[in-house]
Design a protein around this nucleic acid. Sequence first.
DNA 1: CTGAAAGCGCTTACAG
DNA 2: CTGAAAGCGCTTACAG
Lengths: 319, 319
Amino acid sequence: MAATIKDIARISGFGVGTVSRVLNGSPRVSPETRARVLEVARELRYRPNKLAKMLVTGRFPDTTIGIILPLITHRFSLEIIGGIYSGLSRSGYNLLVFNLGKDREQVFEHIRYSHFAGLLALLDPLKSEEKQMLEEHHSRFIYLDYHEQGESSIHYDHFRGGGLAASYLLHKNCRNILFIGDRADTQQRRERLEGFKDALSGREGISLREVYVEHDEEAAYAAALREIHAGRVEGIFFYCDDLALGGLRAKRDSGSSIRIVGYDDIQAAGYLGLSTVRQDGDRLGRLGARQIVELVRAEAAPHEPVSLTLQPELIDRNS
Amino acid sequence: MAATIKDIARISGFGVGTVSRVLNGSPRVSPETRARVLEVARELRYRPNKLAKMLVTGRFPDTTIGIILPLITHRFSLEIIGGIYSGLSRSGYNLLVFNLGKDREQVFEHIRYSHFAGLLALLDPLKSEEKQMLEEHHSRFIYLDYHEQGESSIHYDHFRGGGLAASYLLHKNCRNILFIGDRADTQQRRERLEGFKDALSGREGISLREVYVEHDEEAAYAAALREIHAGRVEGIFFYCDDLALGGLRAKRDSGSSIRIVGYDDIQAAGYLGLSTVRQDGDRLGRLGARQIVELVRAEAAPHEPVSLTLQPELIDRNS
DNA sequence: CTGAAAGCGCTTACAG
DNA sequence: CTGAAAGCGCTTACAG
């Protein structure tokens, strides 16, 4: 099988302790010894067993950054991942992607026995035992597109984004307004809706209702069509572009002149002329990469948490 | 720190060997002992150290499937990943994504010390030492959308796909034909082009030229525009839809009536009315998941390699 | 500068 | 059924 430190010791004639010192670059060995040991190691094609090293040192190597996210196939997540890869290139760090999916525990079990310098948590709040586990492994983490008191994060201002959507509909003279959102109660949805309501609240004669559907273009289509036929609504703010595409279709199929605004600015939004609140996932990813590398490289323990807020932008395509 | 098997032994009054046996479900322990040991383990919140277990057993747990790919942000790759997640759900296996990016060695170093039941290699041929490493870890692999003599794979028939593209252009009465492809010399590009040429070869008066550009819509746009202005070309087959989008734009900007066909059927192709050769990444992913799980569950060593070929389909949008 | 020994947390024959 | 011991591959004081 694979050569071990013992084989090198036997063949070179030194003790395993000495061999270990050479291999770890300790200065307390003579040049001749070092040369000989290294020579034998090369001949044997020695590759250190990291398992054993980790077991005895209790520490993990630090060349890998992990990113953990709830759903890898989500478009915006993907854009962020792309940005992270760009930001990490030439940094000496590589990236491992963990999709939580259905079995969060399994995934964290894997993380526990993997080696990470740092972790980016995309959209997903970490439990306290998970944070603690990361700390035991000396690895730091930063939230991406999620924020929490006392933790580092880089995120978009969703409250502001909701406000932008509101001002768009107001500008188009909508008074009977509808919010169609994802059923999942997330921080982002809460903040977008709060910002939306806040911007609407000062105005006279505005009515707002909320409808929740599955994260699914079809579901959004059906809901929008129903509302349009009921005949009151003048403008709809969709939680995200994926849903808004269904709204756009409902508008077209019903021949209505209703106003529609989405969120994210996915590629299709451009093709189909959907007004939306734009967030730049690539940028978020790049910044996240830079930040986690900085954090990981810093010798000192977690200083003050760093929190960076990015501002979304309204794209008016007159939809 | 965390409780170890030794702590349990001390507190329960048994030896570490007995504790280990209980924890591993050995039948050679009395029910009373088992109960007591388990009780103490629970009190101490004992969690086994997999590192130590792996070190001594030399085997890796087998609950995780890995997928390795050259570029995670590629659209088609993503679709496949989505399919794999679907196919894996409720199978008891979870998925870890490895993006090779720039440092392949680093990534494989990580794989080496991670635990995998099996690996899916998307698009990317494995080196022999990498295969060997996987074997040492008792983990099997299957190629996805790539195939190689003597190895298991699930892939699309790109030769056939190229043929479909050719018949499309012939059907639209194109004679001066151009292929615009990615510069990267991949198995897929070779096969698509071969199939394309093969279908063209029987015909009279057909001329074919090939142009290679960066994998970039802009580059494709520029190349297509140049060719259109030169005035000879009647039909272009683009290696993939990403490039074909540039061609579509060149066609529009120049007011030309040239014919364009792409490959993949990405979302934008539908919106923009691009004719293309469709491959279903979701399906490929699902099948891949099913196959690797079957392979991993099979006790016996690699029987005959299994190779599955999927057929692409022409989508005529009259572009 | 170097060797011998103890130990990281666990498993597994070997006795009893 | 259970304990004591050896060992997985490596590191690190401790002597010398």
